[in-house]
């Protein structure tokens, strides 16, 4: 970065160094996208751990995974610049956009078909004493 800055040092002091700005901007944008993608994925993971029943967990994982992965891919695309890699990433993003929700749908559908009822009604956090001695999956009841 530093080398680039010196290289594109403007002859005229009022001129804005667009190259450097673009580069920094791209770096910032891609970092932001990747970080936010990671946050979404993390949120999804947290959701899988914390949500009370299968469908809500599925929901948390499916939704955030799609969005998070897309964000990360977008960030990577910005990093890659205009190259063959970008095209590949774009394709990956496209397929992920298509398959990830479909897979979530298929799993949820299969669960419903095999007779798993979604838990309805307001969520009641379990008592602390209830959780102890139980596995997490049974804890939310």
């Amino acid at each position: 970065m530093a080398a680039d800055n010196t290289h594109s040092a403007p002859a005229n002091p009022v001129d804005i160094p667009w190259d450097a700005v673009l580069e920094w901007g791209l770096a910032l944008a891609s970092t932001g996208l990747i970080v936010s993608g990671a946050i979404f994925v993390l949120a999804g993971a947290l959701g899988v751990l914390r949500m009370p029943d299968f469908f809500t967990r599925m929901h948390a994982a499916g939704m955030t995974d799609t969005l998070g992965a897309e964000f990360i891919l977008l960030g990577l695309m910005l990093q890659a610049g205009f190259s063959q890699m970008t095209l590949k990433l774009l394709l990956v993003a496209f397929f992920l956009f298509l398959t990830s929700p479909t897979a979530t749908h298929a799993i949820a559908n299969a669960a419903l078909k095999s007779g798993l009822k979604p838990q309805l009604g307001p969520y009641k956090a379990p008592e602390l004493s209830e959780i102890e001695g139980k596995t997490p999956s049974e804890g939310a009841h």
Partner: peptide
């Protein structure tokens, strides 16, 4: 009907 989504998506995906 139940597999409508799956069918549509996979029809598109399998050639790919």
């Amino acid at each position: 009907n139940s597999h409508l989504i799956l069918r549509t998506v996979s029809k598109f995906l399998i050639p790919l």
